[in-house]
């Protein structure tokens, strides 16, 4: 709902917050239904990831056997040299930069710039896909080295368990994101968003808000990755 209006000039700061919440119709005056929904969903999802990470931490504490040394587990052998955290560094870089392209896509969306928005979203999707691909590569590598959810040659079995569970759950999030990026981008490219009439993605001609909402989700997924990265690879 881009075409909403807020009447009169509302007070700022705390005062504004109070007056908005004690007003009628909407508590968040500048937030559309879709965006509000995404925010609240992300809040709930934050809890899911936090609990996953807490579960991982407690497992890491409760287990008796030693925790594998992540430096060599995640190391990548290029020729003879062993480069700890190389792959993961690249993955993180890719994902972070995808956040950048997404942000740009959102800005173009504000400007209703059809082609560039779509293009940037495709780029973001591509980067996301790359990330998932690299993750798949890392999984296969670890599986070849004999890491399983129920056991691994390096030490505590909880390592494999929590690693596959959490990265898998995050990977799913990224993949779903990629899917929707492609869908929305294609529709934008085809110009659906500039034609009148409402659909589940837009309320009328030139309502590019779906891009922004998509952006919220995407940035969230990246942010979560930063934590997973910190907890799994650096700790």
């Amino acid at each position: 709902m881009a075409d909403t209006t807020t009447h009169g000039d509302r007070p700022q700061g705390v005062e504004g917050f109070v007056s908005d919440w004690s007003s009628d119709q909407r508590a968040f005056k500048r937030v559309s239904w879709g965006k509000a929904m995404m925010w609240i969903f992300l809040l709930s999802d934050t809890f899911i990831f936090s609990v996953f990470l807490l579960g991982y931490m407690s497992a890491r504490m409760s287990t008796q056997s030693a925790w594998p040394n992540t430096n060599d587990v995640f190391a990548l052998h290029v020729g003879a040299v062993e480069l700890p955290l190389l792959l993961i560094a690249i993955m993180t870089f890719v994902l972070i930069s995808s956040s950048g392209t997404m942000a740009m896509a959102v800005r173009c969306g504000y400007a209703r710039a059809r082609k560039s928005t779509a293009a940037l979203m495709f780029l973001t999707a591509a980067l996301g896909a790359t990330f998932v691909g690299m993750q798949a590569f890392e999984w296969t590598k670890l599986i070849h080295e004999g890491v399983r959810p129920w056991s691994n040659p390096y030490g505590a079995e909880q390592f494999g368990a929590s690693f596959f569970m959490i990265t898998g759950f995050h990977g799913t999030h990224v993949s779903i994101g990629v899917l929707f990026l492609v869908i929305i981008a294609t529709k934008i490219w085809r110009g659906d968003f500039d034609r009148p009439g409402r659909s589940w993605l837009k309320t009328g001609a030139g309502d590019y808000e779906a891009v922004e909402i998509m952006g919220l989700y995407w940035h969230f997924v990246d942010l979560v990755w930063v934590f997973i990265f910190a907890f799994f690879y650096l700790w």
Binding site: W21, S22, S23, D24, Q25, R26, A27, F28, V31, S32, W33, A36, M37, I40
Partner: peptide, 15 residues
């Protein structure tokens, strides 16, 4: 949640 927060009719404050 969104309906309660964002889709109330005119004059319907939370309170």
């Amino acid at each position: 949640v969104v309906t309660v927060l964002q889709a109330r009719t005119r004059g319907m404050t939370l309170m």
